[in-house]
Design a protein around this nucleic acid. Structure first.
Length: 637
RNA sequence: GCUGGUGUGGCUCAGUCGGUAGAGCAGCUGAUUCGUAAUCAGCAGGUCAGCGGUUCAAAUCCGCUCACCAGCUCCA
């Protein structure tokens, strides 16, 4: 007999060799049916795994991330099997589960098109109906390579070869005629993948490297129930309505024209929003000891050779050769900041120097990467460069983390953090890199923050912490970043005089909070679906007289609002009140003030809140107090 | 840049087998002076992304270019 400790702490006894599946069955038919995978002593495994000693057992259903992954991963095997049945010459590569669904990359001569996808879906349905059992087996690396060579799957052979050095056996999953190299776990049979959809087909490079061959990637999503699939598709459809590109046009905030791909235009209302963000940014930075500078948009190309950027970035980054004079339009602000720091002698007593710049940069991004305001060719970084002594590194990093966290909390954003370590072809010594990376880690630990590590993804001059935000359909965009840099002070020969009277080299931080004002406005627009809270709304109040004879009173109210600093507009058009309310609602104006005979007589206004409908009448002063309170508190409503 | 898809008035879309472009909203004009998400009528608006080709005839078929969408690579 063995003792199995269940998730709640419950301990039960079973025959030695009982499968995890049987344990689930003993706990209830519902759980047994829903189980997708298990964790045995914390290790992921198939639900059919036999338990041969005392263990902790966690049963993972579709509701858990790992259970969902096992489920989706099985769907990706079904996809690959269907493709092999229809197109035997296609070569298999990899097909993992992802956060939402799964994908599979195929090497095929003829690219997949949407009609091919339909055909594949049809074949997948057959495989589900056949209810094939997935059987796990292991082979030694040599046997595994032999098997995949027989099956003429060169990518699989490559994968096994890279894995072979570990000396472990290679695991496979077999479902009928289809055998797939795979670590698992999987759900036990194909019949449970009741509801799935292939959502798109695109190109993707082998090993994610654009130098390699482009494969055909098919994305899909799978659920145990048809209703869940429908629900998911509906939610995605709804989410797409929050797209900032559409809202930006509909609400006259910003737009991009074919005449300037990647070069956004800010319209009057978009400028109001932008200026509010910049004002907020300025005042918060002033409070924290930042000084603001502005450096030129065009500088000598030589500057970027000196900084090292030129050699380390794709040439696509630069707009250059202005009038043959060897100037470049700046793609980043740091070299300008260096020059400012360098113009004077600095004492250790001056440090840290925190120099901020809302810097407009241009980058020649590849056409296929452009995306509304999220990825543009011309954007404003809310940049700052902090010059400091080595002893100040950690406290400065913590200060920036606090600032970013404060900003994001104001907007109600959930963010996640990545730490990127030393890339290849980077400058500097191991010692410096280790010290810099440790300083970043230590600051994150100090703040109790969870983070993901991206090996080799740092800047060429130092490691970095990135803060990512999600857009309306769950894509993530890097916004805030904190980059530690020992190299640039070296290259620009920056110095300060220490207490010992000797010259020392400062360390610097490059950091942004918004990331770029443009991207941040894009995220913000999707976050609020265009319904900005009162403190950010380009128009806060629309004044609506019922008919012509209330126009004078409405004009008085408008004047009062405006002199109180409220962004108000009058809509006295000869239209029914319902019509004008509808327009104000669609323009996402937070407050509408309706006034007719009753209000005119009593000197009041009838308040309608965008989110909450008719709020009844109150006098103008009471309304002003209410809206001012919301604005001052930066309420998210 | 790469792979696939898309491109019809300001917006959302229809347009059959190739036969020469249509609606709603928005706009303008007039009437209506109205109480919390669309008053009625009329008018105007299109080189069907651009260029080239096939054809008696192209929004429709083919090619190239541009832009956009999704993803990949890159990145704030």
């Amino acid at each position: 007999m063995i003792k199995v400790t269940l998730k709640g702490g419950d301990i039960r006894e079973f025959e030695t060799g009982t499968s995890a599946e049987s344990v689930a069955k003993s706990l209830g038919a519902g759980l047994y049916k829903a189980a997708c995978a298990v964790k045995i002593n914390g290790e992921l495994s198939d639900i059919r795994t036999a338990l041969d000693s005392d263990c902790e057992l966690e049963i993972l259903t579709f509701e858990s991330e790992e259970g969902r992954r096992a489920f989706n991963h099985t769907a990706s095997h079904i996809l690959a099997q269907a493709v092999k049945r229809l197109y035997p010459d296609v070569k298999l590569t990899i097909g993992p589960a992802i956060e939402n669904g799964f994908y599979y990359d195929f090497d095929t001569e003829k690219p997949f098109t949407p009609d091919v996808l339909e055909k594949i879906e049809g074949e997948m349905k057959k495989i589900v109906k056949e209810n094939l059992t997935l059987e796990r087996f292991e082979l030694s690396p040599d046997e595994a390579i032999k098997l995949m060579k027989e099956k003429d799957e060169p990518y699989k052979v490559e994968l096994i070869n890279t894995h072979a050095s570990k000396g472990e056996n290679i695991s496979f999953y077999k479902q009928s005629e289809f055998t797939e190299l795979c670590a698992g776990p999987h759900i036990p049979n194909t019949g449970r993948v009741k509801a799935f959809k292939l959502t798109q087909c695109t190109g993707a490079y082998w090993h994610g490297d654009s130098k390699n061959k482009m494969l055909q990637r098919v994305y899909g999503i799978a659920f145990p129930k048809a209703s869940e699939l429908e629900e998911y598709l509906k939610i995605m459809e709804e989410a797409k309505k929050r797209d900032h590109r559409k809202i930006g046009r509909d609400l006259d905030l910003f737009d991009i024209y074919p005449e300037g791909p990647g070069f956004p235009f800010f319209l009057p209302k978009g400028m109001v929003l932008r200026n509010l963000l910049e004002d907020f940014w300025r005042s918060e930075h002033a409070k924290r000891g930042y000084q603001e500078i502005r450096t030129p948009m065009i500088l000598s190309e030589e500057l970027w050779h000196r900084s090292g950027h030129w050699d380390h970035y794709n040439e696509n980054m630069y707009f250059t050769k202005i009038d043959d004079a060897d100037f470049a339009i700046k793609p980043m602000n740091c070299p300008g900041g260096m020059l400012v720091f360098k113009r004077k002698m600095h004492s250790y007593k001056d440090l840290p120097v925190r120099m901020a710049e809302l810097g407009l940069v241009h980058r020649h991004e590849l056409s296929g990467t452009l995306h509304g305001l999220m990825r543009v060719r011309c954007f404003t970084q809310d940049d700052a460069h902090i010059f400091m002594t080595p002893e100040q590194i950690e406290s400065e990093i913590i200060g920036v983390i606090d600032l970013i966290d404060y900003f994001y909390s104001i907007f109600g954003f959930e963010y996640f953090v990545e730490l990127s370590t030393r890339p290849e072809n980077s400058m500097g010594s191991d010692e410096q890199w280790n010290m810099a990376t440790d300083a970043l880690k230590s600051a994150l630990t100090h703040k109790g923050m969870e983070y993901k590590i991206n090996e080799g993804d740092g800047a060429f001059y130092g490691p970095k912490i990135d803060f990512h935000l999600k857009d309306c359909i769950g894509r993530t965009w890097q916004c805030g970043t904190i980059q530690l840099d020992f190299q640039m002070p070296e290259r620009f020969e920056l110095e300060y005089t220490g207490a010992d009277g000797e010259k020392h080299r400062p360390v610097m931080i490059h950091r942004v909070v918004f990331g770029s004002i443009e991207r941040f406005i894009g995220i913000l627009t999707e976050q609020y679906a265009g319904a900005f809270p009162a403190w950010l709304a380009p128009v806060q109040v629309t004044v609506l007289p019922i008919s012509e004879r209330h126009a004078d009173y409405a004009a008085d109210v408008l004047a009062k609002l405006k002199s109180a600093g409220i962004r108000a507009e009058l809509d006295a058009r000869n239209e029914k009140i319902g019509y004008r309310i509808r327009e104000a609602q669609m323009q996402k104006v937070p407050f509408m003030l309706v006034m007719g005979d009753k209000e005119k007589e009593t000197g009041t206004v009838a308040v309608r809140e965008r989110s909450d409908g008719d709020k009844g009448t109150m006098n103008v002063e009471a309304f002003l107090d209410m809206i001012k309170e919301k604005v001052d508190s930066k309420s998210q409503q």
